[in-house]
Amino acid sequence: MFELRLVQGSLLKKVLESIKDLVNDANFDCSSTGFSLQAMDSSHVALVALLLRSEGFEHYRCDRNLTMGMNLANMAKMLKCAGNDDIITIKADDGTDTVTFMFESPSQDKISDFEMKLMDIDSEHLGIPEAEYEAIIRMPSAEFARICRDLSSIGDTVVISVTKEGVRFSARGDIGAANIVCRQNATVDKPEDATIIEMQEPVTLTFALRYMNSFTKATPLAEQVTISMSSDLPVVVEYKVAGMGYIRYYLAPKIEE
């Protein structure tokens, strides 16, 4: 028997909105430590890793490890039927091939039950080593989303370059070129507005903007985004899920030919 109950159901709604455009079908891994997922997009260029720890739920029961294969678009459709203030419960009985989503309104005067068939998806997990990154940028998530959106109107590729001056986002295309430089800015009154750059080494990497824009769908989850870079590794774009865990996106770089 597996059951989780999340009082702040809106978090789960936002999580699905953050991943459903990148990955079609994925396995949710349920264990005593929590509710997680790791899945690559169809081209194996990007990967999303989700972790919601069990202690972050109001109620969490997982009698034995369980993998639930789901079509994320269908799951998102069902979660869209939950109100932003609803309590969301997900449960699956052992040996059944369905999962139930239950939505309770705050005043408990409306209870909804949605049942979805589970899928058999062969899980393709990658081993992602913990790494020391040469540069780590923490900045307002809305700012990062704005930069990715603006640069994608100039070109389809962004060059991210971290130096001691700050972080530079560059794009070029048929109509011209654009450079956006963000400097370290720790002296703000609200910590969520700060831009903090930890740089061990200067690093420059090139990425496809369409994946970066897909990652920024997670912006509503967190005020800040962390971008970790190293010369010979995929970039990690991480959004914390308030007090529960995170959504991490990994993106393979492009190289100049």
């Binding site: 260029v45 990007a46 393709e124 990658l126 496809a208 393979a252």
Partner: peptide, 14 residues
């Protein structure tokens, strides 16, 4: 011209 790399070139399959 930029060549898009893929994640399995960096991370090993479990």
């Amino acid at each position: 011209y930029t060549l898009q790399l893929h994640l399995p070139e960096f991370f090993v399959w479990k």
